[in-house]
Amino acid sequence: MDWEALGLSLSLGGWTIAFLLPIGILAGRWLAWTKFKGKEAVEALLALPLVLPPTVLGYYLLVSMGARSPLGQAIEAVFGQGLVFTFEGLVVASVLVNLPFAIQPMQRAFEAIPREVREAGACSGLSPWRMLLEIELPLAWPGILTAMVLSFTHTLGEFGVVLMVGGNIPGETKTVAVAIYDRVQAFDSEAAANMAALLLALSFVTIGISYVLGNRRSPS
């Protein structure tokens, strides 16, 4: 068992959902309650990572953030190091890959809040902030939690993008999913089997949690 890789994966999942929580809430609310021209295009764009092969995204990230690209050079000039083959680069990639996993459940949750409830809040003179904190979030939280759980688990399992953008660097970009691949190549099937079983169990538990939350949201 590669504990370093496991720690790295958990941390990557943590950072990913830390970024996706505010992004998801803002985007989810916006998409749930606003109608505008081209909304379908925006929704399609945000849902793209669901169907796009991870290698396509990996390729574009490698090209756009690499040491030879203007963006890559700008990042290197500001932070002293580039994003490709670093943990930070993985976080960027992971946030992009998980956009639909975070935004879609949140959007559904915000859509489910009756219009009258929000109007009543607005009539009582609640500021937008207090509306969010006292009315919207308490009603939408199962959807938000589902989004976070899904994004986190999906990050643990992400492989293609991690390998392309991160390489396979111990302690920096070698996540559990990549470590399994690595151990199989090293003829170390015992470690591969342990890590695979752990990911299987972890995925089952987290998906289970999201179903439990889903049932709680819509009691039948």
Partner: peptide
């Protein structure tokens, strides 16, 4: 030391692109 194994060509590309080896 921490060892990362792969194809020499891939590592060549990674080092050229700023990999931390």
């Amino acid at each position: 030391v921490r060892l990362s194994f792969g194809s020499s060509g891939n590592f060549h590309r990674q080092i050229a692109e700023g990999g931390p080896y």
